[in-house]
Design a binder for these strands. Structure first.
Length: 420
RNA sequence: GGGGGAAUGUCCCGAGCGGCAAAGGGGGCGGACUGUAAAUCCGCUGGCUAUGCCUUCGCAGGUUCGAGUCCUGCUUCCCCCA
């Protein structure tokens, strides 16, 4: 794309300035539609888990900015395509989910979007269709005749996602192979129903999106557009959204607000500026000031990043509470009752609980074996005292004046054990 | 249809003369150093009611005191010939 392109629309200006764009099929075309206030764009989200995680956040933010700059965002639930499975970037065939699982996941995921987008019937209000609405009604023969004839297998075989699987001699089932056909058809269908002109997604979706544009042209839709975001990794190359404990979920019932705040607080120095632009609404000049902070001062920027990002998802009140909990815990070394808490029966505690089992109960370590190993390397602490005897028992005598026992795994993970 | 290979620790890759909880990486976790960062260094990386017990090398049998290792059948994948 032309390096000299200067966007006239607010939408592309923001996206370019904040680093959301990897590729676009036609900058001028998208710019004109956005400028005219006629831009409806969609991003597909699958329903393989009960919550989206941080990896989807860039996509969600792109929809948010679209709405803020006068466009209409369409998060599309992949209730239909999830029944098939997307081969893009996956090494192995996905496990098939039951329809009930998909429905449950969908309901759970929907909650998150309402935090980022305004839904309703207005011009720029978001809508959330589910591609099961049209995909499940498809008749195989009709689909082959009307849609399937437009696809070239030769071209599909040359797509990266497919080629990779073939080169590695990995299984690629027929239904997965059809995924791109369905996704392409989604685009056309969303144009018919809602006048959707642009599909966005991660850079790994480029091939699928372009296939949809192609199908649109062959099926008589006007010019459609593609825009992808860069694949996000941390500065040291790790994929975003995974931590020791697993994925960084967006639903609060799957990841406590405090842990979500901590995830952002632990951002690498080199990522702070980039993340502030992508994951907060802070104005650019404020971000430039923050990312210019050097040495230990950059920690201030990380706290702001954590609080802003958390506030957007969980609300400012909860974000500030997490921030305050962290401040007391890390900067004052004080015990805070607002740390994530796990209950234990009072009777059990009176009888005495082995330290190893206590850490397993708290969910800090997966097994007593792991707890044992961590004791050896000095990674476990009770009320801030390193555990040196793996046979020690926790009893009521270990309760602090707050009536809890603080279990720590490593320097950062803390859980309170509260008798009930 | 015929011939030849392959499958290993539930994250991945990968070694493994009949004595194996199984080499070595990567990744991950903990510790030290720091700033709740990165880099570096060190340790750990089947489970449990634990000087012991249980479960692991595609699946099912067999030989053996003892099988990841040898034999038979099966499954899946790859290569060559038709």
């Amino acid at each position: 794309m032309s390096a000299s392109f200067v966007p006239k629309s607010d939408f592309l200006s923001v996206l370019m300035e904040r680093g959301y764009i990897h590729q676009c099929s036609d900058f001028e075309g998208v710019d004109a539609k956005a400028k005219a206030g006629e831009l409806t764009a969609y991003i597909g989200f699958d329903c393989t888990a009960p919550s989206l995680h941080v990896g989807s956040l860039v996509q969600i933010m792109m929809l948010r900015w679209l709405q803020k700059t006068g466009g209409k965002p369409v998060p599309l639930m992949g209730g239909g395509t999830t029944r098939v499975g997307d081969p893009s970037g996956k090494d192995e065939s996905r496990r098939m989910l039951s329809l009930d699982d998909i429905e449950a996941n969908k309901t759970s995921i929907k909650q998150v979007f309402s935090k980022f987008l305004n839904f309703g019937d207005g011009k720029t209000d978001a809508i959330m269709p589910d591609n099961a609405e049209w995909l499940t009604a498809l008749n195989y023969i009709d689909f082959l005749r009307d849609v399937g004839r437009h696809f070239s297998v030769n071209r599909m075989l040359s797509m990266d996602s497919v080629k990779m699987r073939l080169e590695r001699d990995q299984e690629l089932s027929f239904i997965e192979f059809n995924y791109m056909c369905l996704q392409a058809y989604d685009f056309v269908e969303l144009h018919r129903r809602y006048g959707c002109l642009l599909q966005m997604g991660g850079s790994d979706q480029w091939g699928n999106i372009v296939t949809g544009i192609d199908l649109g042209r062959r099926m008589g839709a006007p010019q459609l557009y593609a825009l992808t975001s860069p694949l996000l990794t941390t500065a040291s190359g790790a994929k975003m959204g995974k931590t020791a404990a697993g994925a960084v979920w967006l639903n609060a019932d799957m990841l406590p607000v405090y842990d979500y705040w901590q995830y952002w607080r632990n951002t690498e120095d080199a990522d702070v500026g980039r993340f502030l632009k992508l994951f907060t609404d802070l104005p650019m000049d404020e971000i430039r000031r923050l990312e210019a902070l050097a040495g230990a001062e950059i920690n201030e920027a990380k706290k702001i990043l954590a609080t802003e990002a958390t506030a957007m998802l969980h609300g400012r009140e909860q974000a500030l509470a997490a921030s305050e909990t962290a401040r007391k815990t890390f900067e004052e070394g004080a015990l805070t009752t607002s740390l994530p808490t796990v209950e234990i029966s009072a009777g059990e505690l009176t009888a005495g609980v082995g330290v190893l089992n206590a850490f397993v109960k708290a969910g800090l370590v997966p097994s007593t074996g792991e707890a044992r190993r961590q004791v050896k390397s000095g990674g476990l602490r009770i009320n801030d005292a390193v555990v040196s005897d793996e046979r020690a028992q926790l009893t009521n005598a270990d309760l602090t004046s707050e009536g809890v026992i603080k279990l720590s795994f490593g320097k950062k993970k803390h859980i309170l054990l509260a008798p009930r």
